[in-house]
C-alpha cells in the first residue's frame, strides 16, 4: 500500500495512450443495443405485407404527425451537442438551458408517439393483437420509445446533477459527452425505424418486398 501512490502515477502516465474505459463501455453498450434493434428491424422487414386481414399500414400510418415528431427528435440531437459544447466552454447556464430544450424535444417525441398510438388504437382498431403488422409495429416502435425514455432519464439525471452543482465542467464534460452518445444512438435508430416503418413498410395489402 505504501508504494501504491507512486505506482499509480506510473500507471496513469502509461495508460494515457489507452482508450478511456467510459468511451469503450458506452460504445460496447451501443453496439449491443444495435444488435437488439437489428433483430426487431429484421423481424419487421420479414413480416411486411404478410398481414392479409386487419388494419393495413397504408391505411393506418400518416406521415404528417410522425414527421413532426421525428424532426423534434433529430433536433434534440443537435441541441444536446450545443449543451455539451457549452459545458466544455464552462458555460453551465447555457448547458442547463440546452438540456431543458433537449429534454422537452424528447418528451414531445414520446407524447407524440402516445397520441399517434391512441389514434391507431381507437381510430383504426390496430392493436398488438390485430395482425402481424400490429404486432411488429408496436413492438418495434414501442421498444424504441422505451429506449427514448431511458435516454430521457439519463438526460434528466444530468440536468439534476448540474442543478445541484454536482457537475464540474472541467472534470465532467467528457463524461457528459459520452452519456449523450446514447441519445444520439436512440436518434439514429429512429431514422432506421422511420424509414422501415413509414416509407418501406407502406406496401399495399398482400404485397411484400
Amino acid at each position: 500500500m505504501r508504494t501504491m501512490s507512486n505506482e499509480a502515477s506510473v500507471v496513469m502516465s502509461a495508460t494515457t495512450t489507452m482508450p478511456s474505459r467510459a468511451k469503450v463501455g458506452m460504445a460496447s453498450l451501443i453496439f449491443m443495443e444495435s444488435a437488439f434493434f437489428a433483430a426487431f428491424l429484421v423481424t419487421y422487414l420479414y413480416y411486411i405485407g404478410k398481414s392479409p386481414d386487419g388494419p393495413q399500414p397504408l391505411d393506418c400510418l400518416e406521415l404528417g404527425p410522425v414527421l413532426f415528431n421525428s424532426a423534434c427528435l433529430i433536433a434534440s440531437s443537435v441541441t444536446v451537442v450545443f449543451a455539451v459544447k457549452s459545458l466544455a466552454r464552462g458555460a453551465v447556464g447555457a448547458f442547463r438551458l440546452w438540456m431543458v430544450v433537449t429534454i422537452l424535444l424528447g418528451l414531445e417525441f414520446l407524447v407524440g408517439t402516445g397520441i399517434e398510438w391512441r389514434g391507431l388504437i381507437e381510430g383504426k382498431g390496430l392493436t398488438l393483437q390485430s395482425n402481424a403488422f400490429g404486432t411488429t409495429y408496436y413492438a418495434l416502435v414501442g421498444f424504441h420509445a422505451f429506449h427514448v425514455a431511458i435516454g430521457l432519464l439519463m438526460l434528466f439525471g444530468m440536468l439534476l446533477l448540474s442543478l445541484c452543482g454536482c457537475i464540474n465542467p472541467k472534470r465532467d464534460h467528457m463524461r457528459v459527452d459520452i452519456a449523450t452518445w446514447y441519445w444520439h444512438f436512440v436518434d439514429v435508430v429512429w431514422i432506421f425505424v422511420f424509414t422501415l416503418v413509414y416509407i418501406i413498410g407502406k406496401v399495399p395489402q398482400g404485397g411484400s418486398l
Binding site: V10, A14, T15, M18, P19, R21, V24
Partner: peptide
C-alpha cells in the same frame, strides 16, 4: 473495457 483500457504498461 478492461482488455482495451486497463492493460499495464
Amino acid at each position: 473495457a478492461t482488455i482495451l483500457c486497463m492493460r499495464c504498461p
